[in-house]
Simulated assay, not measured.
Amino acid sequence: MDMKIELVAIPVTDVDRAKSFYVDQVGFHADHDYVLSPELRFVQLTPPGSACSVVLGVGITEMAPGSQKGVQMVIDDADAAHAELSGRGVECSGVDEQDWGRFVYFADPDGNTWSLQQMPPR
């Protein structure tokens, strides 16, 4: 049986601010933005090259804004990722060198945290 993660909820306080951050600064693709009612807005965003998207909006999750911690994406080059994010105004860590990879960390405006991992050579 295959199981594929396709959608991860990101709890935010301001949907438009979060959408702008993820699309304009981090570089995610804006896939959908539907307002179905005053209590339900569905915004789906996808990182470039990813088969998994994120969803944010109104009425999407019961998690408190900022409580999604440590979502991880794999990248090819931690130095390039750091330079690109910094150049787009994203506050991020320097490159963290570990035996299991090279990492860059950042948080969205609500405090949801992300980890970017460059895998070590195999």
Rank of each mutant, 00 (worst) to 15 (best):
R122A: 15
P48H: 10
D14G: 06
E84D: 05
F42L: 08
D14S: 13
Q72M: 15
V26L: 14
R88M: 05
T46P: 06
E62R: 12
V26F: 12
S93Y: 10
D108C: 13
R88L: 03
G57D: 06
D79E: 15
D33T: 02
M63S: 07
P48M: 07
Q98W: 02
G66H: 09
G59Y: 00
K19E: 12
E97R: 06
Q117G: 08
T61D: 05
Y22E: 09
V55P: 05
A9G: 14
K19A: 07
E6I: 14
V58I: 13
P47E: 07
Q118Y: 00
G59D: 04
V74L: 02
S67F: 05
N112V: 02
G70W: 01
D110K: 04
H82M: 07
I75H: 10
P38G: 07
E84A: 10
Q118P: 02
P65A: 15
A78E: 04
P38I: 04
D110T: 04
M73V: 05
F28D: 15
A80M: 07
V55K: 03
R41K: 13
V71W: 02
V104K: 07
I60Y: 02
Y105C: 08
H29I: 03
P48Q: 12
D24K: 02
K19Y: 00
E97V: 09
V104L: 14
A9F: 03
I75W: 03
D76Y: 03
F42M: 08
A80S: 11
D14P: 04
P121G: 07
M73G: 09
Q72R: 08
A64I: 14
V74W: 04
H82T: 08
A78Y: 07
T113F: 00
E84P: 01
A81H: 04
G66W: 04
A18Y: 01
V15M: 11
V15F: 00
H29R: 09
V71F: 10
F21C: 12
G87R: 10
A83G: 12
V90L: 06
A78L: 07
I60N: 09
P65F: 00
T113M: 03
S20L: 05
P38V: 01
D31A: 06
Y22F: 15
G59T: 01
P38A: 02
T46A: 11
F106S: 12
V54S: 06
A78Q: 03
D108P: 13
L7S: 06
R102Q: 12
R41Q: 13
A80W: 01
G89R: 04
S115D: 03
D16K: 11
D99R: 14
A80Q: 08
F106T: 10
D16A: 12
M119S: 15
T46M: 08
G49C: 02
P38W: 00
I10L: 11
H82A: 05
D31I: 14
D14Y: 00
V54I: 15
A78V: 11
L116I: 09
R102I: 00
Q72V: 08
D77V: 06
G57S: 00
Y22W: 14
